[in-house]
């Protein structure tokens, strides 16, 4: 498949997955806020931590000591300037998909386009205020339906594997990020026993029910970390996602006769990261420090994405290309002389 198409599909897939993550996170945070009720500041602001560490937050919200929940919520959900806002994710997914619409099924395209068109409504913010639950649900379900269509209407060939690679890398990154934002606070702050908060972390990753089924025990911090990070069979865990991404990359690489240097690097890095998680134990992770562990995972994912881009999605410049063009021109000139 064309490199450009692979790249656009890779990113469509990533943005759709990101939309799901942002919608879940927003909905859960909204619930937390409702539960806390009018109690001012006792549990702190729920929205601000979602901006992440100071260097990740946008400049205009950074200067503020305490950006208001409304500002943060707007930034995370509606702000066109924030490339990872919910609305931006859908817009960018649709834009990338439009550029490669001949490579995806018509159903996939039409569905994503309809989702995008529904968000272009200028009364959007008001609607979301009125019925936040309905709003988040609509987007999440729209994105999930798109993923379902991807699996059932595309042949499971290279095209499909690139969408899988994007989806699972994004998922691993998102779950790691949620853990790093929330769990870190919980482990080091005063609310280490706040089960409501831990449940919220699980819900942010769509994992609360599965957790209960897997452990059938009460929510405990170490187990939550273990479930979200290391569970081998639940599709939202970081380990599962990286494993699936690794499978996708292997399937892509399997058809390659010659492999570029970067392609090999992507394979090795992803293989190693996946193996690392396969053999980790949660108590060791917690002992060594959850935050540095998660940061390392996220950094490695970013590197892998970079290697994938360089190995498959962008052509390495080939030396001598312009020389070849000049040669063809000379052949032509010689031909003309013969006529």
């Amino acid at each position: 498949m064309l490199c450009r198409v692979a790249e656009d599909l890779f990113w469509t897939s990533r943005y759709v997955e990101r939309a799901i993550a942002v919608s879940r996170l927003s909905e859960v945070t909204w619930h937390l806020e409702l539960d806390a009720g009018d109690v001012e500041d006792e549990h702190g602001d729920f929205w601000a931590p979602l901006l992440g560490p100071a260097d990740e937050a946008p400049t205009r919200l950074r200067g503020d000591e305490h950006p208001s929940p409304d500002e943060v919520r707007h930034y995370l959900i509606f702000d066109g300037q924030n490339p990872s806002s919910l609305v931006s994710c859908v817009r960018q997914a649709r834009s990338a998909a439009r550029g490669v619409r001949e490579s995806i099924s018509s159903e996939m395209w039409e569905h994503l386009n309809t989702l995008y068109l529904s968000l272009v409504d200028p009364d959007l913010a008001a609607q979301a205020e009125d019925n936040p639950h309905g709003f988040y649900k609509r987007i999440r379900e729209g994105a999930q339906f798109f993923q379902g269509l991807t699996d059932s209407t595309l042949a499971h060939d290279e095209v499909w594997h690139f969408t899988g690679l994007g989806k699972y890398l994004e998922r691993a990154d998102n779950v790691a990020r949620v853990l790093s934002l929330q769990a870190h606070l919980l482990l080091t702050g005063e609310h280490g026993d706040d089960l409501v908060r831990w449940l919220a972390v699980l819900r942010s990753c769509g994992s609360a029910e599965a957790y209960a089924r897997y452990y059938s025990l009460r929510v405990e911090p170490a187990r939550v970390v273990e479930f979200l990070l290391l569970n081998p069979i639940f599709p939202q865990s970081v380990r599962f996602s990286l494993g699936a991404a690794w499978e996708a990359l292997r399937a892509i690489g399997a058809s390659q006769g010659i492999s570029h240097d970067s392609a090999t690097r992507a394979s090795r890095a992803l293989g190693m990261l996946s193996a690392q998680l396969e053999h980790a134990a949660v108590d060791e992770v917690l002992e060594d420090g959850l935050q540095p562990y998660l940061t390392s995972i996220r950094n490695q994912i970013a590197e892998i994405s970079e290697h994938v881009t360089r190995g498959y999605l962008r052509d390495e410049p080939r030396p001598g290309r312009l020389v070849a063009v000049a040669r063809a021109a000379m052949i032509m000139a010689a031909q003309q002389q013969q006529q």
Binding site: M1, L2, C3, R4, A6, E158, F162, I252, Y312, L313, D315, A324, R327, A328, I331
Partner: peptide, 9 residues
């Protein structure tokens, strides 16, 4: 080399 190619994965 006087041929047209496309860039694929």
């Amino acid at each position: 080399d006087a041929c047209v190619f496309m860039r694929t994965t």
